[in-house]
Amino acid sequence: MSEWQYEPAPDLDRDLSERLRTFPRQPHLWMLLARSIAAILIRIWLRIYHRLLIEGDEHIPANTSCILVANHQSHLDAPALLSCFPLNRLHRVFPAAAADYFFGSIKTSAFTSIVINGLPFDRRAKGAESLSICRSLLDNPGNVLVIFPEGTRSLTGELGRFRSGIGRLVEGSSIPVVPCYIQGAFDAFPKGSRFPRPKRIRIRIGQAVTYDHLPCGRSTVQTIVKDLHARVLSLAPSN
């Protein structure tokens, strides 16, 4: 009689604060439940208080993995982008969140991992490691990665320079990238303000684009970054 194969959870010997920081996270029933409830409440808040408007969500590929690329103005961005997805896909959407900021204390890491489903992204030293985590995440069909390529919230509301990480992630792969522009989040809840103001938030989602036809290389990374910057900017309301 051959033996049974057990699969112990890899984070079995870690305590809660470590478990919240490790990625990929082991799914927990209570966490999924809490996230679903939080998502419903956040959606109600965004729809009523911020009169959230979503345009073009049909451009998001339904069953394949994709990367959502958006401008970053406020802490409301990630919850607003999560609201573009149906609730049954919620647990497969992972906004990349700065590890140093969002996974610093146990309180913020609990909030980021439970409510936002954030992926701890090291924006300083281990960029390559974080990118490989992102790649393996996207290998699982249906998973969605949300990236703010500016790397931080805009201080002026203008679209800043994109970092090269998104280019390195996308080059040579056939993952569709969906550009988005979030408008109004800067007026509603800019960096440094304490409570959101009741301003309208509008999300415009553009056509998905792939870059697998480009050869790999440094120039391609720059091309991709520039192209995505232009695509996100073209969704801004003045254009």
Binding site: E7, P8, Q26
Partner: peptide
Amino acid sequence: ARATGIYSDWLYTLAVY
């Protein structure tokens, strides 16, 4: 359940809960 691996099968976990 986490040690043996049945935790990943939520139907069984839920049933035991």
